[in-house]
């Protein structure tokens, strides 16, 4: 064997050796469970001595007929449709506002960033205090204006909205930091060049700032999509999905099915739905936004 091919081969082995730990972890904890989940969704739930047996698409038929599933799915979609744009938009607004102000910027930044540092469980507990009927901060303020008490978390019409507000409160501050960093990397000469051409602040934002923020927007919104399906801690603390599943989200329903009712096969089926949903959203986002994103 000639020497060059020997070196080539050794490099090849080294390369794979370096990759192996990451590959093993990725396979063991991500790919394998995903495949197992899809596999399990075609079997019945093993109970006691009864082994799991192949049931074909029966779990999926159950799913289509499950009213709770449809409600939870619609809750999740509403939750995503509202929290994603609102938290991203709010983050952008706050970043633009903070970016223009020099004095006290550090403090303002810290103030906005605080919700991000807190664990979601803690955030949820703070909001429990805000929402408490009668004694809570919101009702006390309403009371000062002579408005009646509201059971924010107990009313099926309000529970989901109240949960969304908490998520937005937590997410917006986090996303703002990314926008702020991106804004500060835009050279001030661009604004001056535009000012000489007579561009208004709005024109400058629309034609320059916003396009230059597109990579950040893509990054932030992918994160927002994933978080909107992934973060359910506050549902546990605040409503446990109630009342009457009004504030239950897909992931929370999966948890309940798997670890409360121990129907693992049906939980697998629900998980497949979540996987498909997330993959579709992520792909769609990249293809849709990629064309309009400018990477420097």
């Amino acid at each position: 064997m000639t020497r060059p091919s020997l070196t080539l081969r050794r490099e090849w082995v080294h390369g794979w050796l370096l990759l192996t730990p990451a590959l093993v972890l990725l396979f063991a904890f991500t790919h394998l469970p995903a495949v197992t989940t899809i596999w399990d969704s075609f079997f019945s739930t093993p109970r006691g001595r009864r082994e799991a047996k192949f049931v074909g698409l029966r779990n999926y038929e159950t799913l289509l007929a499950d009213d709770t599933f449809w409600q939870v799915l619609s809750n999740s979609l509403w939750y995503a449709a509202v929290t994603i744009p609102v938290s991203v938009g709010l983050a952008l607004l706050m970043a633009l506002w903070v970016d223009g102000r020099l004095s006290g910027r550090g403090f303002v930044r810290l103030a906005y960033f605080a919700p991000t540092v807190l664990p979601l469980i803690a955030v949820a507990n703070i909001w429990m205090f805000f929402y408490t009927p009668g004694f809570g901060l919101i009702d006390q303020i309403r009371g000062a204006f002579g408005l009646p008490e509201v059971n924010w978390l107990g009313n099926p019409d309000l529970a989901l909205g109240s949960v969304m507000v908490v998520a937005i409160w937590k997410e917006a501050g986090f996303f703002m930091i990314f926008y702020l960093a991106a804004l500060q990397s835009i050279p001030p000469q661009l604004r001056e060049a535009a000012a000489i051409e007579g561009a208004s602040r709005w024109t400058f934002f629309r034609r320059v700032t916003f396009p230059l923020l597109m990579p950040t927007t893509l990054f932030v919104s992918v994160n927002a999509v994933i978080n909107s399906f992934r973060m359910v801690d506050h549902v546990f603390v605040m409503t446990e999905g109630g009342p009457d599943n009004a504030s239950s989200l897909l992931l929370f329903y999966i948890y309940e099915t798997a670890f409360k009712y121990w129907d693992t096969a049906y939980a697998s089926t629900l998980t497949v739905v979540l996987l498909v949903l997330l993959s579709a959203l992520a792909l769609g986002q990249f293809f849709l936004l990629d064309k309009r994103v400018h990477y420097r």
């Binding site: 050279p187 000469q189 661009l190 001056e192 060049a193 396009p211 400018h294």
Partner: peptide, 9 residues
Amino acid sequence: FQSYALFPH
């Protein structure tokens, strides 16, 4: 401008 200040996008 010295840095040209062209709009990169």
